[in-house]
Amino acid sequence: MIPWLTNGLRSPSPILLAYLGALLIFVAVSLYSPGFAHPAHVSTLIVIAAFTGIVAIGQTMVIVGGGIDLSVPWLLNSAAVATTALTRSSDAALIWVVPMILVSSAGIGAINGLAIALLRVPPIVMTLSMNVMLMGLLFIVTRGFPPPPTPLALQWIANGRIATIGLPVMLFVWLALAAIALVVERRTAFGRYLYAVGSNRTVARLSGVPVAGTTIAAYAISGFTAGLAGVLLTGYAKQSYLGMGDPYLFTSIAAVAIGGASILGGSGSYLGTIAGALILTLLTGLLPIFRLDAGALKVIYGAVILFAVAIASPQLRRFFRRE
């Protein structure tokens, strides 16, 4: 463990920097406004971060594999609307509705992957089209009528705390999913294949990596996590509405980029994405304290992404080393 630490300090990895950044923001804001570090507020932030974090699991995998998933917002929204519409506020119905939604979400992701891997449609085009098609269909299907409120069981998962320790349920949901994501990424053949495909498709193919299968699986996972986030988000919002997925296009990609993954694929880790999700959420938390409006947040978001990708740029590192 020690060589890992000293190496990390000598030439800090983007992941380490992202966590340091998150810590820095947290400490600084807490000093300025002590209420920020209040356990209740922290756990609210964690719950918000968890949604971005869950969507970003799939986004991380897709980007590591050399693609990008722009279909996340309305896939998430579709899953959310389906949840409330199909359960009609009944807890019992969740038992069949949720698995069905998750399977369909993964299936839609797989369709993205199929077109990208086998029909050579550029990822941006395919996932973009999927996004707008889902959006249109969702408007058509709902006809603007709000579905009934979310079943209480889901509301408990998204908003509840575990009474004995006072920690939000969502924290454990996120931790469990993060653990699975990290194991898949590091310990499975699929994870290795994903990095290989994202690094160099030709090498991967010639080395016997199932390139198409790996790509399709990555997009299917992204569909799954977006769908899951949609289901859980209905619990948090106590309802579903059109447009609830919109922020997650930007935040999921931003979290991956801030976490140090290359948008070209082949590098990065969900470990970094977690830090990215935390940073983005902490920045949201600045708004009320500094009385910032949505415009300022967007400026800060953009600047943080630029800063994060710039410090990871080999060009900039070379420049400073020369100084």
């Binding site: 990008i68 941006i124 930007f250 990609i253 931003a254 980029a257 290359s262 948008i263 070209l264 409006d293 949505a294 415009g295 300022a296 947040l297 967007k298 400026v299 800060i300 978001y301 953009g302 600047a303 992404i305 630029l306 990708v309 710039a310 740029s313 080999p314 060009q315 900039l316």
Partner: peptide, 27 residues
């Protein structure tokens, strides 16, 4: 060009920044 960064990420970030400025000019 100078930092040799990917256009997708750079313009995603500047999109956010410029839209933010627009919101500040007129919410």
């Amino acid at each position: 060009s100078l930092l040799k960064l990917q256009p997708f990420l750079v313009t995603l970030a500047t999109w956010s920044i410029v839209e933010g400025i627009a919101l500040i000019v007129q919410p």
